[in-house]
Design a protein around this nucleic acid. Sequence first.
DNA 1: GTCTATAAATCGATAGAC
DNA 2: GTCTATCGATTTATAGAC
Lengths: 189, 189
Amino acid sequence: MAKDTKTALLDSAERAARTRGFDGFSYADLAQEVGIRKASIHHHFPTKAALSAAIMKRYTQAFAKACQSIDAECATGGARLAALIDRYRAALEGGQSLCLCVSFSTSRNSLPAEVISEIVGFRQMMLAWIAATYHLGGSDRSIAMVHDPAQEAAATLAMLEGAQLRARAEEDPAHFDNALGLLRSRLAR
Amino acid sequence: MAKDTKTALLDSAERAARTRGFDGFSYADLAQEVGIRKASIHHHFPTKAALSAAIMKRYTQAFAKACQSIDAECATGGARLAALIDRYRAALEGGQSLCLCVSFSTSRNSLPAEVISEIVGFRQMMLAWIAATYHLGGSDRSIAMVHDPAQEAAATLAMLEGAQLRARAEEDPAHFDNALGLLRSRLAR
DNA sequence: GTCTATAAATCGATAGAC
DNA sequence: GTCTATCGATTTATAGAC
């Protein structure tokens, strides 16, 4: 079945935002990719603010679901954290893309308030999940040297996001692996 | 003595780029802040590409100098790394600003080639300095548990840059301190 | 070195026909 | 739901007077 226009617009907008940033994509870009006129986009999303809020909201939900899938498929904390790292690496799309939350964070002044609170919520969700994963990994001994799960979570999320920045800037995911090597070596397999 | 116009433009452009991103500032913004007409900016910097390359080049030189100052003032690896962390925190300007390298990295497709290679050079310089600092800190026992300085450097730079992202997005430097807490606790004082 | 004036393109958004 | 047509603002950049 063919994608409906609204979903096609969300997909195109997410890809554009993650590749070029909030101030780097326009309705004209989406119109060309989806194959409709740019005026028609306003029927589905009245403003760019509304569209941006919609893709950030959808992105958070998809990521929460992905974390649930990891929990279902991986038993140990170490395996779960390794799976999360892999997902952040996959989000790079070969060095052409970023996590939407990372991409939006450098454009704070351009963002509507809705998007900012979505970004805050996204990170809160991620930090809670990572902290729980460290707690498990400390208990089941699948992550080495866990002292404070909350502190580890804050450090890990920063590292994941920061590692994406260099990999994106140099269009080379190897830089992501480079930054995450030390953490990965703490995980049992 | 009053700042010359060219320097005033560089200062204004750097501040704008670090606050709003490459695609988020315009010649009109700089003109208003510096107090000249926007056409006059082209006399000093013919294109936005040239202006951006100039601020990135100056930023790299200033940061290299700052690292030299740290080396001169701090004897141990731990003290040097702590000073670098403090500098990344100060660059936040209370949550209103980012490292220029961080800000530019999400706008790769809009950047002229000159700026991209400057960004690559900036990170290479930082990684070399951080790795050397870890090496020293391992030797003088002022940084705990140092195994591979190069890997530590890659992880640390990612963490510094990533920690800025959240602090900027939420306009609160406390989030930066949160992410860096674990690393800071490894440093002797 | 700074100005006025202007160009050509693009931005997000709206009105109204179909 | 998509279209054509258009609006007003803004973008980077240039020409030429002073």
